[in-house]
Amino acid sequence: MRWCVAQQYVFSAFLVMALSLQLHLTGQAQPLGKIVAAYDSSAVETGEAFSLEFRITPAAAHPAVTNLSPWYGVLPKENILACTHWERTEQGWRQALILIFLEAGDVILPPLPVVLLTGDTLWSAPIRLSVIPTPTPEEQASWRDIKALWLTPASWLERWAWLLGIVVGLLMLAIVVYWLLLRRPKNRRKVRETVHSKSPHVLAAEQLAALESQRLWERGALKAYYTELSRIVREYLERQYGFPALESSTEEVLQCAQRAIPSILNDPLKALLQWCDLVKFAQATPPAHYHAQAMREARRLVEQTAAALRSAPSETSSYPSAEPPA
C-alpha cells in the first residue's frame, strides 16, 4: 500500500516537471512577426530616387535573406540602387532600399519573401506606386504659388461688417477727393481772380511803385533790384500782349515785343533787359545814374504801351541813354 502511494507521488512530481519544462520552452518561442513597407508618398517622379523601408514588428527571429527577384518583372535589377542589411531597432528589424523608375505609369511591386534564420518565411504586401513624368522647365515656369486660404464669413453679421468697412472707406476717400479737387482749386481761382482783376498796366504800375519805394540800389542789393524789375516788365508784356515773356529768353522777348510795342520803346527795352541779365548772371554793375533811370524806363514802357492800346498816344520824354557794355 505504501509502495503504491510512493509511486503516485513520483508520477505527480514527474508530471509537474514535464509541464514546467513545456511552459518554459513555450515562453521562449519567438513569434514570426509582421513585415510592412514604409515610404513617404505613393507618387514618384521619373528619374528621382525613391526610398522605402521594410520593417518587421514585433521583434522576430533574425531575418536572413530578402528575395528581390519577384520585382524584376516590373523593376529591372539595375533600378534597385541600394539595399542595406537588416538592422535591429527598438521595435524590431529594418531594411532600407533605394529605387529609381524611368518610365511613367502605375506600378505594382509584388510581395517579397523574407527568410528568417529559423527557416520561416515572411511575405510583404504588394506596393502600389504612381510614377509621374518629370515636368519640363516650361511647365515649371507656368506654375503659380499656392494662394493663402480665403475664409468665407460664418454669418451675415461678418458680411455686413466687411461691407460697412468698405462704405466708410469710400466715404472718407470721397471727402478727401472733394477737399483736394474742389476746395483747393476754388481758393486758387479766387487768388488768380483777385490778382488779374486789375488791368496789366495798373498792376505793373503798382508793382513798380512798391519796388521803387524799397530803394534797393541804394543799399547795394543790385541783383535783387534788377531781378524783380525784369520780372515785372516781363509779366506785364506777357499779360498785355499774350506771349510767354516770363519763360522766354531776352532775345525772344525783344523779337515778340518789336512787333507789338511802339518802335520808340524798342531800344530802351533792349537796354533795360540786357542790363538786368548782366547784373543777374554776370554780376555786372550799371552806371550809378542808370539805377533810377531803369525804373523810369520800365514805367514809361507801361504807360506808353497802355496809351497806345487805347489809341491815345502820350508824349514821350527822353532820358540819358546807358547802353550796356558789349
Rank of each mutant, 00 (worst) to 15 (best):
Met1Ala: 12
Met1Gln: 12
Val5Thr: 04
Ala6Asn: 01
Gln8Met: 09
Phe14His: 09
Phe14Lys: 10
Leu15Asn: 05
Leu19Glu: 12
Ser20Asn: 05
Gln22Arg: 03
Leu23Pro: 07
Ala29Thr: 12
Pro31Gln: 10
Pro31Asp: 12
Leu32Asn: 09
Gly33Val: 10
Gly33Met: 12
Ala37Asp: 13
Tyr39His: 07
Ser41Cys: 07
Ala43Asp: 11
Val44Thr: 03
Thr46Met: 04
Ala49Leu: 04
Phe50Ile: 04
Glu53Val: 04
Ile56His: 02
Ile56Arg: 01
Ala61Cys: 01
Ala64His: 12
Val65Glu: 09
Leu68Pro: 06
Leu68Phe: 14
Pro70Tyr: 12
Gly73Ala: 10
Gly73His: 08
Pro76Trp: 06
Lys77Trp: 03
Ala82Tyr: 05
Thr84Asn: 07
Arg94Trp: 02
Gln95His: 15
Gln95Asp: 03
Ile98Pro: 03
Leu99His: 06
Leu99Asp: 13
Leu102Ile: 13
Ala104Gly: 11
Val107Thr: 08
Pro111Ala: 01
Thr121Cys: 00
Pro126Asp: 10
Ile127Met: 12
Ser130Asn: 06
Pro135Glu: 09
Glu138Phe: 04
Ala141Glu: 09
Arg144His: 06
Asp145Ile: 01
Asp145Gln: 13
Ala148Cys: 00
Ala148Gln: 06
Leu151His: 05
Ser155Cys: 03
Glu158Met: 05
Trp162Thr: 11
Ile166Cys: 12
Leu173Ile: 03
Leu173Gly: 05
Ile175Arg: 08
Leu180Pro: 03
Arg183Val: 13
Pro185Asn: 15
Lys186Phe: 08
Lys190Asn: 13
Val191Gln: 15
Arg192Pro: 01
Val195Glu: 15
His196Arg: 12
Ser197Leu: 00
Ser197Gly: 14
Ser199Thr: 06
Ala205Val: 00
Glu212Gly: 11
Glu212Asp: 07
Ser213Ala: 15
Ser213Glu: 13
Ser213Leu: 09
Arg215His: 07
Arg219Asn: 04
Ala224Arg: 14
Tyr226Ala: 09
Thr227Glu: 02
Arg231Ala: 11
Arg234Ser: 06
Leu237Thr: 00
Glu238Ala: 09
Glu238Asp: 08
Glu238Arg: 05
Phe243Trp: 05
Phe243Met: 02
Ala245Gln: 09
Glu251Leu: 12
Val253Arg: 09
Leu254Phe: 07
Gln255His: 12
Ala260Asn: 11
Ala260Ser: 14
Pro262Glu: 07
Lys270Thr: 14
Leu272Ala: 03
Leu273His: 11
Trp275Met: 08
Leu278Ile: 00
Val279Phe: 07
Gln283Val: 01
Thr285Gly: 00
Pro287Phe: 06
His289Met: 08
Tyr290Asp: 10
His291Cys: 10
Gln293Tyr: 14
Met295Ala: 14
Arg296Cys: 01
Glu297Cys: 03
Arg299Asp: 04
Arg299Lys: 08
Arg300Gln: 14
Leu301Arg: 11
Gln304Asn: 15
Ser314Phe: 07
Ser314Leu: 15
Glu315His: 05
Pro324Lys: 02
Ala326Pro: 03
